[in-house]
Design a protein around this nucleic acid. Structure first.
Length: 263
DNA sequence: ATGGTCGGTTGCCGA
């Protein structure tokens, strides 16, 4: 079974690209982030025409997460227990949706950006990841054989090799010790990055800023990850980052990340 | 050359 995660940066503006990509890549499950659409705006029909069922959670023009599957989509969950809110009053954003696809509990996650080191959004990001780690630890404790995939845009580059320039990110979000520690909390809860062993760095990225010709200059970041529970990680037989999809007019600023598990 | 780019409830904010 082939599973992928992709921050599409608006499903409505990217639907032609997503459709073409699904047709040529043969993935069974796609976790999507930043749909930037309400439920009534999501192009469910375009996915149905390709044989994919979709569970989507979108509240407004921001965030938005979905799971498209052609191997079943059961027990859909919107958000996870303990997921922190944002705003005044604080409310849960559309950043997490889960579903069981052929026995695998798939989560599509859009971790808060953080915005700046001195911005309250950074504390929100850290709390969000700690809550996810706590929830994930509980899921594995309840069932050590659980097949769980935490997929998405984590907005953190865990290692120095994951950014084109360590110096550039000094004083910015995504590489700070606090953010890296928060990412590690999820790893420590039992979830392993199953892509890195198959797509090692340095110079291996999943995101390139639209500005400054970052893609053309190969100046990116690895911030999109597939973290799997032990039982699922044991089944992974391959993985790749589809850098080709970042090319050309109309591309998302993120590339799809794909991994394959043995049946 | 003090800039450059996308997206959407666009003339501003979030990424």
């Amino acid at each position: 079974m082939r599973i992928a995660t992709w921050n599409v940066n608006s499903i409505r503006s990217r639907i032609d690209r997503v459709e073409a990509w699904l047709q040529r890549t043969d993935v069974d499950v796609l976790a999507i982030q930043e749909t930037k659409a309400r439920e009534d705006q999501f192009p469910f029909d375009r996915f149905a025409a390709l044989g994919y069922e979709v569970a989507h959670h979108g509240l407004n023009q921001w965030n938005g997460v979905a799971i498209a599957s052609r191997v079943g989509l059961d027990d859909v969950r919107v958000g996870f227990e303990g997921q922190p809110g944002w705003g005044e009053p604080a409310a849960a954003e559309a950043r997490a949706i889960g579903a069981v696809c052929r026995g695998v509990r798939v989560w599509s996650l859009y971790i808060p950006n953080g915005r700046a080191l001195d911005d309250p959004h950074l504390e929100y990001k850290l709390q969000w990841l700690d809550a996810l780690a706590d929830a994930g630890r509980g899921w594995i404790a309840a069932d050590p054989g659980a097949q769980i995939a935490l997929l998405g845009d984590w907005n953190i580059a865990p290692q120095d090799d994951d950014v084109w320039s360590v110096a550039y990110y000094e004083g910015r979000t995504h590489t700070s010790p606090a953010e890296r520690a928060a990412f590690q909390h999820v790893v420590d809860a039992g979830f392993a990055d199953v892509v890195r062993p198959h797509a090692p760095g340095p110079g291996t990225y999943t995101y390139w800023d639209y500005t400054q010709l970052r893609f053309q200059k190969r100046q990116g970041m690895r911030i999109d990850f597939a973290l799997c529970s032990p039982a699922l990680a044991d089944r992974v037989v391959g993985a790749a980052i589809d850098r080709e999809e970042r090319k050309g007019k109309g591309a998302s600023d993120h590339a799809p990340v794909v991994f394959e598990i043995a049946d």
